[in-house]
Nucleic acid binder design. Structure first.
Lengths: 133, 133
DNA sequence: TATGTGTTATATATCTAATATAACAGTTGG
DNA sequence: CCAACTGTTATATTAGATATATAACACATA
């Protein structure tokens, strides 16, 4: 697995896991229909508890990025990813606001800001496109 | 004061406070040299504890957005705001990554993403420029 | 029938968030 | 000088989040 957990980070382990799996899905490193490791095996691999992995899986299931077949395991969503609807865009804008405020406060220009935003997105997109489907 | 606290939010109160004061500074609603309310009066206004306000003030002081004169109170930084140096830009990019990943996963294009990023920044910037110095 | 899924249920330890009091050091206004 | 106001420090308590440890359950399947 490609997951790396930082136990020193102040970001909760289940959040790190959720983010990295989501990133894997976004970049195509994890293909639709592809099986994720079982909660027990991934927990063992990472040296963490089964429930911590389960919490990440549950979050991803609830937001629609994976499916969980009760006796078969977790699988990357194959019936289309959840849409970027208005509700999501609003949540996104809300989350971006404090960052935009701090950047503006530190004297960044709109161009500075957009450069970093663009880089963050393109980096992931490039990863996906450099990958066979 | 312009601060609104949402007690139902899962965002900690001191973080909400920190963000809103930072936003006030970024938009110019709070001018350099301007005094902030004392920890006790702001806490009373918002119906929260003095230490919660103090925590927000301490974070803003440590990051360089306000100064604290021990017996005079908290004042918006007048000696220049902290810069958007490489360390900050790296932290920013790191924080943006999970959001970019989810947006990409949900099928947003680079243009969709940049539109929302631009709007978040411009909204604050416009507020600042529509304000006399 | 044994094994491997996710799930549920308890229990525990540790840390964060928030509150409640109280006191201290130093400035400032009456 | 004295009362009032700053931030600061200290202690204690409550509630919740995070993470772990065990154990058991329901269900499919090899």
């Amino acid at each position: 697995m490609f997951v790396r957990i930082d136990l020193e980070s102040d970001v909760p382990i289940y959040t790190q896991l959720t983010n990295q799996i989501m990133e894997g899905i976004a970049t195509g490193e994890l293909q639709p229909g592809e099986a994720l490791p079982s909660v027990r095996s991934l927990a063992a691999d990472l040296g963490i508890n089964l429930h911590t992995v389960n919490k990440a899986y549950t979050i991803l299931k609830d937001s629609g990025f994976i499916q969980i077949h009760r006796q078969k395991g977790a699988v990357v969503q194959s019936g289309g990813m959840p849409p970027a609807d208005d509700a999501y865009k609003e949540r996104l804008a809300e989350a971006l606001r404090p960052m935009a405020a701090e950047s503006l406060g530190r004297g960044m220009s709109l161009e500075d800001w957009l450069t970093i935003c663009r880089a963050s997105f393109e980096q992931l997109k490039a990863k996906r496109e450099g990958r066979p489907i």
